[in-house]
Design a protein around this nucleic acid. Sequence first.
RNA 1: GGGCCUGUAGCUCAGUUGGUUAGAGCAGAGCGCUCAUAACGCUUUGGUCGCAGGUUCGAGUCCUGCCGGGCCUACCA
Length: 570
Amino acid sequence: MNRTLITSALPYINGVKHLGNLIGSQLPSDVYARFCRAKGHEVMFICATDEHGTPAELAAAKAGKNVADYCMEMHDVQFELARGFRLSFDHFGRSSSEQNHLLTQYFAGKLAENGLIEEISEKQVYSNTDKRYLPDRYIEGECPNCGSPDARGDQCENCTKQLEPTDLINPRSAISGSTDLEVRETKHLYLKQSKMREKLDNWIKQKSDWPILTTSIAKKWLHDGDGLQDRGITRDLDWGVPVKKGAVDWGGMEGKVFYVWFDAPIEYIAATAEWAAKNNKPKEEWERWWRTDKGAENVNYVQFMGKDNVPFHTLSFPATIMGADDNWKLVDFIKSFNYLNYDGGQFSTSKGRGVFMNQALDILPSDYWRWWLLSNVPESSDSEFTWDSFQQGVNKDLADVLGNFVSRITKFCRSKFGEIIPEGNEYGPREFTVINQLEERIASYENNMAKMEVRKSAADLRAIWSIGNEYLQDAAPWTLFKEDPQSSATIVRFALNLIPLYAALSEPFIPDATDTMVTAMNVDKLWPENISNSLTLLKAGHKFSVPEVMFAKITDEAREEMNEKFSGKK
RNA sequence: GGGCCUGUAGCUCAGUUGGUUAGAGCAGAGCGCUCAUAACGCUUUGGUCGCAGGUUCGAGUCCUGCCGGGCCUACCA
């Protein structure tokens, strides 16, 4: 049996994510996971909240909560939203879990053992008022280059010059505005990625089938300037995984934690361990996904992420895995995405611009969002959400093409034959032609799905739905009924049989609609392995019911209202 | 500044290793149908493929330059 391990980039903990975050990894990974399951793969689909780092601490402080409580609450919020969007994770973990603490410390220990960790003493800015070290971008001041008063410690946004925090004139804390800052000497661990450069380079070179977006970013980091740089993997923070060498304390590293980007990818593994613990499964059950010496050698591991995550998944995390040199599973394929913009600009949490996951579900059910987002996923370049496009895509594809097909044939049958599959004759040439068309399109659909070509898959699916309307129009059972009800019944039986087929094929994109169709037709969901056979599943005499309108249309008034509401006036 | 991606019909996008009349969906126009969520089907109008050179028997596809859009540039994650 095919075994597929799928991970989605971890959403950060500091708030509800917007639609751009959703379509950037979670949603496409869910489509792929559902497809693999439907094709009979054994699937492990993992996601988690990424809970460490300065922004989490600040968000908690702002909410007036201690960071552990805050993260627990936000994890629950994100978990519920994931359910709301029907994301079918086998486990949605937390990077703050005990499992991740242990594994992160284990990996650090292994890397140290293998000579890949270096202790470096460096100077960091400390804020006495905030009682914390400040990351470069949390220090603001006047730009020495252009004089902008709001330059950040890593870069001036006004003149784009790269800066060091000590370059700033009159530096202040971005958190409190305090100028009571001092430079302190502090020791940190660095992952010697530079030593792994050749190995990583050779590995990336083999991946000619990966998206260009993925490999070009990796190559840039490998070859730019002096090549791949070592990376600090510890921070002076309270909240995080305490720095340890495996199970033992790390001298000189007291009070420090691992950098969020070191522990976050390890959470993919740890979350699988969380899954095992939660389901009372032994250690072997998660190790067979992650240890090539314990069953993972035949696992196909696919990662999904936005382009901002690519360097960490193509270089840092593989450096950790390779560097540990202990039979851990490396990723086989990285599917990366561009950004979704909102109506001519970026989504913005601070400006209240764009649609966030909770708001989206308040407006319309998840299928609407899933369909539009997936059929417009930023695959080859950045793409853009507009209410106009959303209304048009949803109304046309879901309401008119699919929803109306289901509606017209079930209602026609009910009025002429009742809510029961009529018998009629054997299928004839017209039906065989349609079967051929379906076979062709479904083959294309499956091929594109297997390649994770999401947009093309959506286009195929839509074309498959459309075949039903073309058939009905051509066969016109309503005309035939007047003189030859028997032949009309054949057409109705065939058309009704399309509904379970559509239900199964549509499930990766619009799972709720699949449930509606399956329930209405009173059948089990079954991925078609043989199209001809699958269109004879509903036999004469089988009872069904006419479903409620599957997709109500978005009105012009509603569109205008939403457009106004989310434009981010303030 | 450097690097990467991108520019194909009004809009959103496909265009395989360069090969005959450049495709799809939406929008527009016309016709048809009346089972259906004023839905559906058929036909059809739109493109000197950003611009200028070059390579080639042949370029949307390769090369060079220019113009426009986007992203990344390592302490946000």
